[in-house]
Design a binder for these strands. Structure first.
Lengths: 136, 136
DNA sequence: TCGTAAATCGTAAGCATTCCTATTTACAAC
DNA sequence: GTTGTAAATAGGAATGCTTACGATTTACGA
């Protein structure tokens, strides 16, 4: 997923194109790491004083539903990042300081599935946390 | 970790023994799955009408600090379970319906670590979600 | 240009969790 | 047993993140 694909997807699905939506997508396209609703609010409120949190969250959820963004929950707060949609299924190392990520191509489900006969597996989460080389 | 070990640990660390603490530990010893603060509140408020959420959370955190309980965050809400402390490091399958768990002995960190030179790894999370045989 | 549904604003409400003060209680020392 | 004291609890207010909602504005097709 890149910025143009995201903008086209929005248009093709019949959603209106607004400056705020463009700026939100540009923000995530540029950031390349997990960011929170309030990170986004701080950026947007410079350009749009008084922007509503309703707008922030509504669009975050919309983009998440359209698979433009992916999300995870860290320390009780939802974090969003631009989707790695086209790549092979993978997981993330997440920097505890800057939120940037590194792909982990190994998926642990490849190793454990045979042991779960009788269980209906619906999803899984594998994340590694620490400090990236820049933040150490 | 079992109930007696937990009670002894509390005593040895110099914490006071109260009926509520005993009941909280008995609750988790019996449940054997992830439970929330409000699950616990519902049980305790029968016996102790008007019990404070402060008491619930203070003790949950105390027990977590003492490693009597372990915790994870599911759907924006902290969940706690009796600690599997004595066992070898492992992860969990967690039933989305009843919260009960099944151990996963494989740890994905055994497979990915060499690829993370330059990264300081501090922690990781691996959980599998779905329905246990009983809940299907 | 206009009509309409979608998007946004401003603000209130919801929910889990934390914080604060007054009161009560466990337990050690006597 | 009685007493003193720090720890534990009750009751409720406050906080932080998220969602909800009526009123207003805007994008965009006709």
């Amino acid at each position: 997923m890149n910025l143009n694909e995201a903008l086209n997807l929005l248009k093709n699905e019949g959603y209106k194109f607004t400056d705020k939506r463009k700026d939100i997508l540009e923000f995530f396209a540029k950031e390349d790491g997990y960011r929170t609703a309030s990170d986004l609010w701080e950026i947007l409120s410079d350009k749009y004083p008084g922007i509503s949190y309703d707008t922030i969250y509504r669009n975050l959820h919309l983009f998440h539903d359209l698979r433009i963004l992916e999300s995870t929950e860290l320390a009780g707060e939802k974090h969003f990042r631009f989707s790695c949609g086209h790549e092979h299924h993978h997981h993330h190392f997440i920097c505890n300081n800057c939120g940037k990520t590194k792909s982990i191509k190994t998926c642990p489900m490849d190793f454990i599935q045979p042991k779960f006969q009788g269980y209906m597996i619906e999803s899984h989460k594998f994340e590694v946390y620490g400090l990236c080389p820049v933040c150490q």
